[in-house]
Design a protein around this nucleic acid. Structure first.
Lengths: 101, 101
DNA sequence: ACCTTCAGTTAGCTATTGCTTACGGTAAGT
DNA sequence: ACTTACCGTAAGCAATAGCTAACTGAAGGT
C-alpha cells in the first residue's frame, strides 16, 4: 500500500503529472499538452497515482478533473520522518569516530 | 541527482537495505544474511544507494561499514514539504466546491 | 440522429531492472 | 607464501515498466 506510492512517484514523468495536478487541478488533455507524452500515457499514469491514493478525480461533464490527494503522501512523510533522525545520528557517529586519526 | 534517490528507494529490497543500514551501520555480509537475496545483490544495491547519496562507506580492514547519509534524503524531504501544503489546499478546495450540490 | 470532444483500456514493442553465477582482487591470519 | 574472509564487477537471464497506436465508449452541441 505504501509501496504503490513509492513506485508511483519514482517515475519522472509520473511525478511531473502529480506536480502539475498538485499546483492546479486539471483534466487529462490539459496535462498531456504540457507533457512530452501522449494522452493515453497520462491516463495510465493517473490510474497509478489514483491507486496509490496520491490523486483524486471529480467528474465534471465529459471531463474529469484530477487533484492531488494528501493521503497518499502521508505514508511517505511518516517514513521520511522516521529515518531522518536515525540517519543523522549514525552519520555523525561515524564521522566522530573518524575524526581523531 | 534527485531522481537517483527516488529510483533507489522505490525498490523494496533496496529500501530494506537502507533501513537496516540506517538503524545500525553494518557490512555487506551482515546485510545479506538478513535479506532474502545474495551478497552481490546487496553490493549492487549499496552502489545505487551510494551514488544517490543515501549511504556512505567507511573502510575497516577488509570489511566496509555502510551507514546512512542524511544528504540523500534532504532532496526528497524538500520535495515533500513543497507539495504537502499545495496538495492539502487543492484537496480541500475541490471538496468545498462539491459540498453544495 | 449526427458529429465532436473527452476519456479509459488493450495489444504489442522496446528498454530497463533486479537477480544469480562466476570471476578478479585486496587485506588479515597462520 | 598460502589460505581464508571479505568485497566489487561483469555476463547473462527473466520479469517488469512505460510508451504509442488502435479501439471502445460516454456526454454535449447542432
Amino acid at each position: 500500500m505504501e509501496q504503490q506510492a513509492w513506485d508511483a512517484l519514482a517515475d519522472p514523468t509520473r511525478r511531473q503529472v502529480f506536480e502539475l495536478v498538485a499546483r492546479t487541478p486539471s483534466h487529462v488533455q490539459l496535462l498531456a499538452d504540457r507533457l512530452p507524452v501522449s494522452r493515453p500515457a497520462v491516463s495510465q499514469h493517473l490510474k497509478v497515482l489514483r491507486d496509490a491514493g496520491l490523486v483524486g478525480a471529480k467528474k465534471e461533464g465529459t471531463r474529469q478533473i484530477y487533484f492531488a490527494d494528501q493521503r497518499g503522501l502521508a505514508g511517505l512523510r511518516r517514513w521520511m520522518d522516521q529515518f531522518w533522525d536515525e540517519a543523522l545520528a549514525n552519520y555523525q557517529a561515524e564521522f566522530r569516530e573518524g575524526e581523531n586519526d
